[in-house]
């Protein structure tokens, strides 16, 4: 792989992860309580455990979040 292509891939990865962090933090600490009733009152350890997954799968999480907002 050429160095320029590798640099683009790394930048894309960092951008994806950066957006993931921006989406995941409010989701894990606020939104998840509305999306999943079993998360209400759950301990901080639970939120920390699901945080990496929310960062990695942020498009899925954002879809769930927006879907929830648009629901009547």
């Amino acid at each position: 792989m050429s160095e320029s292509l590798a640099e683009i891939l790394v930048l894309a990865f960092l951008a994806y992860a950066g957006i993931g962090i921006l989406v995941a933090i409010p989701f894990v600490f606020v939104v998840v309580n509305r999306v999943d009733g079993a998360a209400r009152g759950a301990p901080i350890g639970f939120r920390v455990l699901i945080l990496p997954g929310c960062v990695g799968l942020w498009p899925f999480i954002a879809f769930r979040w927006l879907g929830r907002r648009q629901a009547p």
Partner: peptide
């Protein structure tokens, strides 16, 4: 580039480890 294989495997294993909580099963 054998490290590419390792990184690809690590990416899959990350998704599996990060979604191992019951929350993910439900979500």
């Amino acid at each position: 580039g054998f490290e590419m294989y390792g990184l690809a495997a690590l990416a899959i294993l990350f998704v599996m480890a990060a979604t191992s909580h019951d929350f993910w099963l439900h979500t």
